[in-house]
């Protein structure tokens, strides 16, 4: 297995675990998370609760889907869907935090804690999310890369079809 594949697997493990962990406090404290969502002022008042109910479940599902333990074609497809969902969420979260900071407002990002004493968002949150986004992009690109039977990742191997192909005269 190439170093690239190993690193991609580690990215999937880290990102998956991170998003599963991030969903837990939000699932346990939906009211507090709804308040965190409302502080971004990006969701209309009546949609705040719907977003606060759905978002932790999307994080949980995407995190589980991105884990590297799923095997086979279906597993790979599931992982790719999970990584794309994580990427989409990271883009939205980063944009929302950046908008909050640009408006000069301070609030806890609500990323990993819904507690009132969680530290407020800062430029660090944006930098962290951009880093996570880069790792997500790398893992997704590797996951979507050529399969061994296509002669990409499995260098030196030959697909069964090619191996037994009789050259035409």
């Amino acid at each position: 297995m190439s170093a690239r594949k190993v690193f991609s697997g580690l990215c999937c493990l880290g990102l998956g675990a991170l998003f599963v962990a991030a969903s837990v406090p939000k699932l346990l404290e939906p009211e507090a998370f709804a308040l965190a969502v409302s502080r971004y002022h990006v969701v209309e008042g009546v949609l705040v609760n719907v977003a606060a109910i759905a978002l932790p479940w999307v994080e949980l599902a995407a995190g589980v889907a991105a884990l590297p333990f799923w095997r086979g074609q279906g597993g790979r497809r599931l992982r790719l869907a999970g990584l794309l969902t994580i990427g989409g969420m990271l883009v939205v979260f980063t944009g929302a935090i950046a908008m909050l900071l640009a408006a000069g407002e301070t609030a806890s990002c609500g990323c990993f804690s819904t507690r009132a004493d969680a530290s407020s968002s800062g430029g660090w949150n944006v930098v962290r999310n951009v880093g996570l986004l880069a790792l997500t992009a790398f893992a997704a690109w590797t996951e979507a890369g050529p399969r061994p039977e296509e002669g990409g990742a499995g260098r030196g191997r030959m697909s069964l079809r090619k191996r037994f192909e009789v050259p035409s005269p």
């Binding site: 719907v50 109910i53 759905a54 978002l55 932790p56 479940w57 999307v58 949980l60 599902a61 995407a62 889907a65 497809r77 599931l78 790719l80 869907a81 999970g82 794309l84 969902t85 989409g88 979507a144």
Partner: peptide, 18 residues
């Protein structure tokens, strides 16, 4: 090609959450 699967995952998780 995986984007529809990601959308489906998001929708399914949202419905489950609600």
């Amino acid at each position: 090609a995986a984007i529809p699967s990601a959308v489906l995952l998001t929708l399914a998780a949202s419905v489950a959450g609600l």
